[in-house]
């Protein structure tokens, strides 16, 4: 949830939150592109690389659904921490989905970039 923290107020931030939310599934799949990660690593990777602050209570149910949909696979691995961790990786359909989403995202972002150029004009 959002707290208004600047003059844009709730409205502007709400819009931005919606945009980020819509990209969450793609971000989760993309974070697993290079290596197997467990839940907390996915959260940290998202917040470091993309400033996506995903609530824990949101991530785990989505991971569970992505696995049920066959996009992810998981395995318990014993760790030196003393408790096992559940690692996730992309299945072949998961990699395909990640690529499709990334391509769609690129196309979308590129087409919007040209449109917003004049809006940002003075600033850049």
């Amino acid at each position: 949830m959002y707290m208004a923290s600047n003059s844009n107020g709730n409205r502007g931030q709400h819009w931005e939150a919606q945009l980020r939310k819509g990209s969450l599934e793609m971000a989760i799949l993309a974070s697993l592109w290079q290596s197997r990660l467990y839940g907390l690593e996915i959260l940290r990777s998202l917040s470091e690389k993309s400033q996506l602050d995903v609530a824990e209570g949101t991530l785990y149910p989505i991971l569970s659904r992505l696995k049920a949909e066959g996009l992810l696979q998981s395995e318990w691995v014993e760790a030196e921490a003393g408790h096992p961790r559940k690692y996730y990786w992309l299945t072949a359909p998961g990699r395909r989905r990640a690529r499709e989403m990334a391509e769609a995202w690129q196309t979308f972002a590129a087409s919007l970039a040209a449109l917003v150029q004049p809006v940002l004009g003075g600033k850049r």
Binding site: M1, Y2, M3, S5, N6, Q13, E16, A17, R20, K21, G22, L24, E25, M26, Q51, L52, D53, V54, A55, G57, T58, I62
Partner: peptide
């Protein structure tokens, strides 16, 4: 992909919280 999920507790100022 992530329906209207809003964490009622986690409020973050200045950054997007999903």
């Amino acid at each position: 992909p992530n329906p209207a999920y809003q964490m009622p507790h986690a409020t973050v100022s200045g950054a997007a919280q999903i």
